[in-house]
Every structure is written in structure tokens, then in C-alpha cells.
């Protein structure tokens, strides 16, 4: 379907920079890059992939260098940092070197599938949205690999946030999103939260600043390699973050 439109999309003048913050993703990085190249190639949009590796001890950067040789320095851009720093600063760091007018943020652990990116882009064009957020909670969206407990916590936490914050987006903690570059720049500097709450704060601040938000249902396939974490600590920090946003925004 998308491949026929290739020439048109390539000439649109838009460029999409994908920011991939990584930490110990040696297994996943080649796979996610391969998928990104595949779907961007088929849809014909102009793109670059910016890998921000935070000094992974497992040799993620080395793999990234190999990928750069395979796919070219214009497609794979490496912006490593010496040690693990926050997600927000990773975006700021990556954006400094992004040449696209749109930025896509996603996890490198294969839980976010690049096949949705063309849908994000179409959605963005449809309403000239300032940001498009993937949602697990609407339409055909969903998850894979979650037990009942995990689903209950996720739905409960999201319901609470919806009631308290009324943010006008259904998936607050998801981190698969497309932003206009200027919008991401103005948002990311204002957001101070960590972890799950960071993504929530981005959406809440976006609403505060009257940015428009589009949504695309996505399937979230929980980490194929490596552990996914949701323990007591995550829940407590989520609750703290939610209450902070409730009191300050």
C-alpha cells in the first residue's frame, strides 16, 4: 500500500528524526534499526536514526557503529554519552543533532513496532497535530505479555491520572510519539520528572501550552529480550509524580 506513494512522500520536504536512547540493547538495536529501515524504505519518507547510547557496558555502541557502516552515516547517527543520564537529557542531547523537522521518540527494546510510524505520520498530516501519541488503550491498541495484575495496575493508574489531570490523551505513560521538532524542544526543557512520569508530564504540559494531540492505536509487545520491570518502587514513584503534576499543573 505505502510503497506506491514512495516518490510523493520523499518529495514532501519533511524529514523524520528517530531518537533511540539505548542502554544495554546490543541484541535489540540491530533489529529495531532493521525494522525502521524497512518501514521507512517502504513508505518513502525521509528519515534519520539517532542512537543515543549511555555508555552501555555490553557493547551497544560497537554494534551501532557496525550498523552505521551498513546503512550509511546519513541514516544512522551516533550521539553517545559517557554514562547513564536521564531520558529528558537524552532527548535534548539527541535533538541538538537532529536535522529533521519532526522527531519520533520510541523505545529501542522492540516493544514499539516501527510499522506504526507511517500511521503516525499520516495522522499528523491529517490534523497538522503538534504531537501524535501512540495509545495502547484505544481502538485496536493493546499489549502482549502482560498478566492480569499488570493490566489491572496499568488501567487503574491510567484511570486515576485521567480523572485527576484530564489531559485529553488516552495513553499518558506511553513513550512512542511523534513531535514537531519545535514542540518537543519547547516541552522537553520544562519537564523535570523521571521514568514513567516523564512521558505523562510531556503530555500534560503539551495540553497546558495548547498544543494539539493526535492519537494512533498501537500494539505494545513487552520486552522480548531482557526484563521488564514493574515493582513497588515504580508504583510509588508514579503516585508521587501524579500527585506532583496534580498540584502544580
Amino acid at each position: 500500500m505505502a510503497s506506491r506513494k514512495a516518490p510523493k512522500n520523499r518529495d514532501s520536504g519533511n524529514k523524520y528524526s528517530v531518537l533511540l536512547p539505548t542502554y544495554n540493547e546490543r541484541e535489540n538495536l540491530p533489529l529495531i534499526v532493521w525494522l525502521l529501515v524497512k518501514y521507512f524504505g517502504e513508505s518513502g519518507y525521509n528519515y534519520e536514526i539517532i542512537v543515543i547510547d549511555d555508555g552501555s557496558p555490553d557493547g551497544t555502541l560497537e554494534v551501532a557503529e557496525q550498523l552505521q557502516k551498513i546503512y550509511g552515516e546519513d541514516k544512522i547517527v551516533l550521539r553517545p554519552r559517557a554514562k547513564k543520564l536521564g531520558l529528558g537529557t537524552a532527548y535534548i542531547h539527541g535533538m541538538k543533532h537532529a536535522t529533521g523537522n519532526f522527531v519520533i521518540i520510541m523505545d529501542a527494546d522492540l516493544s514499539h513496532h516501527p510499522k506504526f510510524i507511517p500511521e503516525f505520520i499520516e495522522k499528523q498530516k491529517e490534523g497538522d497535530y503538534d504531537l501524535v501519541s501512540g495509545t495502547r488503550y484505544r481502538g485496536n491498541g493493546g499489549v502482549y505479555g502482560w498478566d492480569l495484575r499488570r493490566k489491572l495496575i496499568s488501567r487503574g493508574a491510567n484511570f486515576l491520572a485521567q480523572v485527576l489531570l484530564r489531559p485529553g490523551a488516552s495513553d499518558l505513560t506511553g513513550s512512542f510519539r511523534l513531535y514537531k521538532k519545535k514542540v518537543l524542544e519547547s516541552l522537553v526543557g520544562r519537564c523535570v520528572s523521571k521514568g514513567y512520569v516523564f512521558q505523562m508530564e510531556m503530555i500534560v504540559r503539551a495540553r497546558q501550552l495548547n498544543y494539539t494531540i493526535g492519537e494512533v492505536p498501537i500494539s505494545f509487545v513487552d520486552r522480548v529480550y531482557g526484563e521488564s520491570k514493574l515493582g513497588g518502587n515504580e508504583i510509588v514513584s508514579y503516585a508521587k509524580g501524579l500527585l506532583t503534576l496534580f498540584a502544580t499543573t
Binding site: 554494534v63 522492540l110 513496532h113 502482549y144
Partner: peptide, 29 residues
């Protein structure tokens, strides 16, 4: 809450395909 069995299956197949293709392109995993 949707269970995306299909998506997981599709991903697994694509991972296999990706591995093979990347090996051909000379990536040392």
C-alpha cells in the same frame, strides 16, 4: 484490554528475517 498475539507472532518472524538479512550484510552480533 486487547492481547496482541498476532503482533507478537509477526515480530518474532520479522526478528528471524532481520537476523538473517543482517548477517548477510556483514553484521557481527
Amino acid at each position: 484490554f486487547n492481547d496482541c498475539e498476532e503482533a507478537a507472532k509477526e515480530l518474532q518472524e520479522q526478528i528471524k528475517e532481520a537476523r538473517e538479512d543482517l548477517r548477510k550484510k556483514g553484521l557481527k552480533m
